[in-house]
């Protein structure tokens, strides 16, 4: 449920750990997380992720015949992606109509998933991926792409690798892992990334705020570390449904000794 530690401290790291974040976390600490696969009966594949207060549900439908016909792609399937925030996901009600931000994020998430899904296997078809943010608390795009990859795998769609996302940022001059809602508002920079962990490729990369090249390197490495941690959780969520397809409701057995 929570991030694991167990690292040696250099004097540099000790200095960093003096900085305690707004929610009490250390700079390189993730919020508690949990991923469950196969949570919606009707979808071909589904997953949910909880990352701190974030709660995102992803569903996959397809591959299926694509409509309208004139859009059909002869050589590969079309991947449709929708990242959407529910009206109650934020303190101030969000209009259910897709905002420009949501359209942009749907596009960058689609690009990330396209790198992993073997679309060539399904010419003239389409695959729909829906990510619904039920509750938002910072870093929703990377949590969404993480859940969507699990939902695609749950749907049995061939993939070159999983896609897993994590964010890093800068708050009060400190580079931090897994940017929370307050930190996104108050902070100096936000760096969401998503990777294909086994192919070692970055498939989503955005940044806003200000970072020197040195700070970017530190933030990038930290986000990679966080993504690898979440990748283990993705694998755990997927293997647990393989182990026991019956236990859909319960989800997973704790692997902790």
């Amino acid at each position: 449920m929570s991030s694991k530690k167990g690292k040696k401290k250099s004097s540099d790291e000790e200095k960093k750990e003096e900085f305690i974040r707004i929610d009490g976390r250390k700079p390189d600490e993730m919020r508690p997380y949990k991923i469950r696969a196969h949570i919606l009966r009707n979808a071909d594949g589904s997953a949910e992720i909880r990352l701190g207060g974030n709660w995102i549900i992803a569903a996959v439908y397809g591959p299926k015949e694509h409509f309208p016909k004139f859009e059909i792609s002869q050589d590969k399937a079309i991947l449709n992606c929708r990242y959407h925030m529910t009206p109650y996901s934020t303190t101030e009600r969000k209009s259910p109509k897709p905002s420009r931000r949501e359209i942009e994020l749907s596009k960058v998430i689609k690009n990330a998933l396209e790198q992993a899904v073997v679309l060539e296997e399904f010419p003239e078809m389409s695959i729909d991926v829906y990510m619904e943010v039920a509750q938002a608390e910072g870093s929703t795009r990377v949590a969404s792409v993480t859940a969507a990859a699990v939902a695609l795998a749950d749907a049995g769609i061939p993939m070159r690798d999983l896609v897993v996302g994590c964010s890093a940022g800068k708050v009060n001059g400190h580079i931090i892992l897994d940017v929370g809602e307050e930190e996104d508002k108050e902070g100096e920079a936000d760096l969401p990334i998503a990777i294909m962990p086994n192919l070692r490729k970055v498939v989503l990369l955005q940044m806003d705020g200000k970072l020197t090249h040195e700070e970017f390197k530190e933030a990038f490495d930290l986000a990679l570390k966080g993504a690898m941690e979440l990748y283990e959780e993705q694998v755990r969520a997927l293997t647990s449904i393989l182990k026991d397809m019956e236990v859909i409701e319960e989800g997973v057995k704790d692997e902790k000794e």
């Binding site: 960058v108 690009n111 070692r200 490729k201 970055v202 498939v203 806003d208 990038f220």
Partner: peptide, 20 residues
């Protein structure tokens, strides 16, 4: 001042080293 203030991966993917 040679700081990075915006990044957008618009299309495709990059290896970790390629980012730098």
């Amino acid at each position: 001042n040679n700081e990075i203030c915006a990044i957008q991966l618009i299309q495709g993917g990059l290896g970790y080293e390629q980012v730098f």
